[in-house]
Design a protein around this nucleic acid. Structure first.
Lengths: 190, 190, 190, 190
DNA sequence: ATCTAAGCGAGACGGTACGTCAAGTCTTGTT
DNA sequence: AACAAGACTTGACGTACCGTCTCGCTTAGAT
């Protein structure tokens, strides 16, 4: 038995995501409503509810929809610090570009574990994986005596991103990158 | 010209704060409404709007109302690490005790700069002040070569608290304390 | 361009009007609130505000919604008095049957010209038209010397209805009909 | 035991009545609130509630407070029509001067029997008494065959006043006076 | 000449209803 | 069967007034 009826309209999907991006950027996630999204996207509300569970889910798909973070290149040990530093700069670049959207998503994550899980999957886990890779693979996951494990360092970096995203709290200057450079240096020192 | 009219009812004030604490703990900040607070506190809605600007403001007063963080004791240099470690443990204890309320407050901070400023004033600034104190006073505020400044370290610790508060993201285990111990060791090492 | 979307629910419309009729009869128009109407009719407040401008407008539609007054039969000149007397008795019957609703509507008319206009259109104008018909048509509209014009008589009868509706003021006995009989006799005398 | 404490402040009383008169004239009785009266009169709300039962009661005292209608002069029979006509003109003059206040009072009367009773006592009863006087005293109260009794005529005139007060409904022209002249002529004819 | 009880302006209180906004569901007709 | 449009019930919003209740402060007869 094959499926009957019309296929899902990609045009509507894209219009919804685009409208959401615009509205969040313009007025902040709090002031975005499903009704405004539907109106801006020329889409019926039932269409939205058919495909997304909540306003949070639309936002998550906006931010984390495609490929989010760059892959880690395999590099020689001598270039690790340079490569890692560049990689984290790219991460921060992505964060800054999507600051308004991510801010809303982070706010949502504090009340909705589902969103928190998606944030972890698309942001936290890749960071930790990259650090483990640089630290020398899974075998080195256990914390070094008196030093930070890749896991702990990932937490720290994720926290730094959360801090940077908070309005007023975090400046958007380069201090985070320098912090990271100092910390990453600890990873391999001995 | 003296103050005329009836005085503000402290009973109502306390009832509102207590009701908010209960409701946030029971169902999460998102599901708390002004109407439910008013009903639970046996208080009229206008009374709430007379004294608080928003639901966020009530929450902020709940969490940050009294004395929040312990003061830093003056200690001898030899005891710095012990003392700092204990102090940060106390901070985390406060955070864990008020986790549900703080989670809501952090979520609000991501959309409301006013709340963000209060969070910084009551949590971030005391942490930074303590670190500066331990680092040897204002004269040592500038970052040490290859090390973390007290300011950067405060950002890192605040970020760690944000991470710990996020549902699913942060575990409530002792790892943050250990992270802190490692980092604080860097402050004075040279 | 055709009409899109869902049609207006006649069920809701009828429920609102019925609930209003009941509530006005039970407790008087002053104590009727939109919220009570909505609750009794099991209808949302926005639905009410979508279709009616005010509480007054709902009441007006309740009272003046359908066919209000009986038409005037064409009758031979000899039967005019009998016929007119019967017709006015029917008018008073309608007034008495809807006394509670009309009382509220009249009260509203004194503060809201819109309601006053509707009252005139559905009650005053038909009365005047009937009197003109009995007086011999439009050609006889001008006042007879020393007598009452149909227009003046209509004002008098409308005033008598207002008086009868006022609580305490007007008795609900038959005196109005007799007054009318005396007055109508003046219309055609000579 | 005599009364202790301060006497009622006549200044406050007058200020309340004056403020009410102004507010009703400016915006209509519906939009007048106790709070606005208190503010305009520089008077506390409890002072108002201490002396008046309701907003209606304040209005009633505004309109019907002093001497309302002129007394009927004793006149010779030959001058009755002239005298009665002048008297009713004076009544209509009073009505027109206080139209805005009376309109509110009439609206209130339709929902509040207390107000209706006051209206009858200060307006309806004097009219009926005057008509009885002109008709030749109490002995002539019974209706004349085929004519209107003074009681019926009083109802008619009161109704005409109600009609004249209603917005849109009644014009403020002289037609009511002429109507009255025609009717009063019926009183004594035979 | 005090004392003291009531009246006073001001304004906060617990409530009720307002009119609006948005949520998520249901209906209608079109593609 | 999925779509755009839009009416539906529900429930919370923030505001306006209600009528009551403190607040200190007059004010004036009783002591």
């Amino acid at each position: 038995m094959e499926k009957l009826g019309r296929k899902r309209s990609e045009k509507s999907r894209d219009a919804v995501l685009q409208a959401t991006r615009e509205l969040v950027t313009e007025s902040g996630f709090t002031h975005v409503t499903i009704e405004k999204i539907a109106a801006r996207a020329h889409v019926g509300k039932p269409t939205i509810y058919r495909w997304w569970q909540s306003k949070n889910a639309i936002l998550a798909e906006c931010v984390l929809g495609g490929e989010v973070l760059p892959a880690v290149d395999e590099t020689s040990a001598s270039e690790i610090h340079t490569s890692a530093s560049e990689w984290f700069r790219a991460v921060l670049g992505y964060v800054d570009e999507n600051a308004a959207l991510l801010r809303g998503l982070v706010a949502a994550a504090y009340e909705d574990p589902e969103i928190a899980a998606q944030l972890r999957a698309h942001l936290g886990d890749p960071i930790e994986a990259a650090l483990i890779e640089w630290a020398g693979g899974a075998g080195r996951e256990t914390p070094l005596a008196g030093e930070l494990s890749p896991h702990a360092l990932a937490q720290l970096l994720f926290g730094a991103i959360l801090y940077r995203l908070a309005p007023t709290l975090g400046a958007t200057d380069a201090s985070d990158v320098e912090m990271f450079d100092v910390l990453i240096a600890r990873l391999h020192t001995q």
